[in-house]
């Protein structure tokens, strides 16, 4: 398989993920109005913003569940090829789309485990059927991953038999089983009961410590402050301000962000 690589050496060599000037409209509503972001190896970037600011759409545009109308994306140096159709971008190759998605782990707000499969089957599904790797190897790796996220004893249970926190940990393990280059988290704790949030955040924290490159759309201020090395605040489809957690939470940022975090202190 031959993929056209970027002519831009900076984007090609340094960054796990580069996004340039992404725009996305739903009908007449402009949800993303030109977003650019770079994630280096090991970066943990928290994306904050009130609902409707476009943060989930941004994440979905990165792994191509939505296709941005304009803009460019590189994943681990590989440029995602687009062609223009009716004034908007359309992927040039569906094969490349599949291949890029396989390299990006996605964790959803409502877990999205496959209900008819056991947890172990959920984990090996991608490695066996998408990556076409030997089954026995995949099972061994999957069991190690379940051990790591602390639900090894649930490997033969079905998703409906697990608590929300366990389901989300299983979903994270399912993404990890694909050995992704970047992990995308779309409000991973928003659907959880408060007492279950901690167990998921602990798993994410240990991933961050292992050097996984992560983009996390979240409302967990403590996670943003303590675990991420960069915080991005989105407002009305644009990046309002961004910086290190220390800079961002010291108060010397935009008025909109101060007001936003003010709402959380209550």
């Amino acid at each position: 398989m031959v993929h056209e690589h970027s002519a831009d050496p900076a984007a090609a060599t340094v960054n796990r993920l580069s996004v340039r000037n992404i725009r996305k409209k739903f009908g007449s509503l402009e949800v993303l109005r030109g977003i650019s972001l770079e994630a280096h190896d090991g970066d943990v970037i928290s994306i904050l913003g009130s609902s409707g600011s476009g943060k989930s759409t941004f994440l979905r545009c990165i792994n191509l569940l939505e296709i941005a109308d304009e803009g460019e994306i590189w994943v681990d140096g590989e440029h995602i090829n687009m062609v223009r159709k009716h004034g908007r971008n359309v992927p040039a190759s569906s094969k490349q789309v599949d291949h890029i998605r396989a390299e990006l782990g996605m964790v959803f707000q409502s877990f999205n485990l496959w209900s008819h499969m056991t947890i172990l089957q959920n984990l090996i599904e991608g490695p066996v059927h998408v990556l076409k790797r030997p089954r026995a190897e995949c099972i061994a790796e999957a069991e190690a991953l379940l051990e790591k996220v602390g639900i090894a004893e649930k490997r033969h249970a079905y998703p409906a038999h697990l608590s929300g926190g366990q389901q989300q940990r299983a979903a994270i393990a399912r993404s990890l089983a694909m050995k992704p280059k970047v992990m995308l988290f779309d409000e991973p704790t928003s659907a959880l009961d408060p007492e279950l949030v901690g167990e998921v955040l602990r798993v994410m924290r240990s991933l961050a410590e292992e050097g996984m490159t992560m983009l996390v759309v979240t409302h967990e201020m403590n996670f943003a402050r303590d675990v991420s090395n960069r915080v991005v605040f989105m407002r009305e489809g644009l990046i309002d301000c961004d910086g290190s957690p220390a800079e961002m939470f010291s108060g010397a940022t935009s008025p909109a962000f101060r007001q936003f975090i003010g709402n959380f202190r209550g």
């Binding site: 996605m106 959803f108 209900s115 599904e125 059927h129 998408v130």
Partner: peptide, 10 residues
């Protein structure tokens, strides 16, 4: 569930 499958490259 379909989206989850797409997100791993199916």
């Amino acid at each position: 569930e379909i989206e989850a499958a797409r997100s791993i490259g199916m």
